[in-house]
């Protein structure tokens, strides 16, 4: 059943991808999209598709699945249904690093942002891990969440401080800070692709171990699991996924939080299914959100990072209302 669903999901994903390339300010038919990809004749429409829409759609697809898988891993790892790269401070760390980069080195190129973002995400993840294990009882879900919240608050207020001190930085960075997949070129996508691919493969490979770990640390140890290694590997995967996606698209919240919960409706509690489904669903959600962001206020567009909470939060509230009894 679940593998059939997977197949259907992939078909739907491809449809979304096609729609994402066809729809926009200039509407281009699906046939034309196919011809542009198969054999471009150099016309304006084909150029739009190959240089603007293709990278953009691929970015949305990659970032969506990366963030969703990162969120699912974090929720399994911390046994905290509210964990995601945003809440555990990784997005804030990456954003802070990029703002620092713009402030001190005066760069305005997206590929340099990417480098800073990866470093920032890694430092933030390591600090949250380290700080979280200082608390009573070691690396418990609660300690990790507290450490993440504290780090987020600290780092984002430092980010605000820089933005207040330097209006130039604010001007350069504010579109990036909102989180968007528009205007990314193929070179940038290719630059970040290796990180995302390694992170995704590593994450998907950990499915079985994560399922065991989500039963509780002592259970996992009792079943003979080396929890330290698993946690370490999962953390590496999260840093690659979250850092890589912040690097291309800026901080995009909510996908990582919401998608794993949606997926659990049909995939249950088994991370061997949750993770691939999260990758698929995350990509679909972000592609659709990006299409919506392009179409709501034509010819203007909204950054997809802003669309996500507006679409996602009502759903989240609904989940809370129907699921949380006490």
């Amino acid at each position: 059943m679940l593998s059939l669903g997977m197949l259907l999901g992939i078909v739907f994903l491809l449809m979304c991808l096609a729609a994402s390339m066809a729809l926009g300010v200039a509407d281009i038919g699906p046939g034309e999209v196919y011809r542009a990809l198969a054999a471009s004749d150099g016309s304006t429409e084909h150029l739009i598709i190959r240089t603007v829409r293709l990278p953009r759609s691929l970015t949305a697809l990659l970032v969506g699945s990366a963030v969703a898988v990162a969120g699912a891993i974090m929720q399994g790892l911390t046994r905290n249904p509210l964990a995601d790269p945003g809440i555990l401070g990784i997005n804030a760390g990456a954003a802070f690093a990029v703002v620092m980069g713009v402030f001190f080195f005066n760069t305005a190129s997206l590929s340099l942002y990417a480098g800073f973002a990866l470093v920032g995400a890694a430092v933030a993840a390591v600090s949250v891990y380290g700080l979280g294990s200082l608390g009573r009882g070691g690396l418990t879900p609660l300690n990790l969440t507290i450490a993440g919240a504290a780090l987020t608050a600290l780092v984002s207020s430092l980010t605000t401080a820089i933005l207040i001190l330097s209006q130039r930085t604010l001007e350069e960075i504010r579109f990036w800070l909102a989180g968007s997949v528009a205007g990314r070129d193929m070179a940038l996508v290719m630059q970040v692709l290796p990180y995302l691919a390694v992170g995704l493969v590593l994450g998907l490979a950990l499915g079985k171990q994560l399922t065991t770990l989500s039963l509780g640390e002592s259970v996992a140890q009792g079943l003979g699991q080396n929890t330290l290694w698993i946690k370490g590997a999962a953390a590496v995967s999260v840093v690659l996924l979250a850092g890589g996606s912040v690097a291309i698209a800026g901080p995009i919240g909510f996908v990582g939080l919401i998608v794993p919960h949606i997926v659990r409706f049909w995939a249950g509690a088994d991370y061997r299914w949750i993770l691939p489904y999260a990758a698929l669903t995350g990509a679909i959600v972000l592609l659709l959100a990006d299409i919506a962001a392009r179409l709501v206020i034509q010819p203007q567009e909204l950054p997809v990072g802003i669309m996500m909470p507006i679409i996602g939060a009502p759903f989240f509230v609904y989940l809370v209302k129907s699921r949380v009894k006490r």
């Binding site: 504010r174 800070l177 909510f254 909204l302 996602g312 509230v317």
Partner: peptide, 20 residues
Amino acid sequence: ILVGIGFSLVAGALTELMVT
């Protein structure tokens, strides 16, 4: 608490929209 978090995220996104 949870509904509060959800609402704060939406309001935060709209604020971000103004800032952008």
